[in-house]
């Protein structure tokens, strides 16, 4: 069962990567990367059970923490840039 679930998660990660490559806007790509990140957390937890190694759960938690901070940092960067561009347009 765990194998089936991990295959489903892997397929979705590939689909998210396709969306990240297709775009077309930056936000589509960030959304796809966000989905990819949460799916990584899920995959790590499933792998912990698939191989019977609970230590993988710690990795999953660490990845969950990093993922959120990463997405927020990237968004902050783009938001800043678009505000600056708007400011430049108004001048």
């Amino acid at each position: 069962m765990y194998i089936l679930v991990s295959i489903a998660i892997l397929v979705t990660m590939v689909l998210a990567l396709v969306r990240a490559l297709l775009g077309p806007t930056v936000y589509d790509r960030v959304l796809a990367v966000n989905v990819f990140g949460t799916k990584t957390v899920l995959l790590l937890s499933v792998i912990a059970f698939l191989y019977g190694r609970p230590d993988f759960l710690d990795l999953a938690l660490a990845y969950a923490l990093i993922n959120v901070v990463g997405i927020l940092a990237v968004l902050e960067f783009f938001q800043d840039r678009s505000r600056k561009q708007q400011g430049a347009d108004n001048d």
């Binding site: 489903a8 397929v11 979705t12 689909l15 998210a16 969306r19 796809a32 989905v35 799916k39 899920l42």
Partner: peptide, 8 residues
């Protein structure tokens, strides 16, 4: 998970 990926 799969349906969400397809929907994306």
């Amino acid at each position: 998970v799969l349906i969400g990926g397809i929907g994306g």
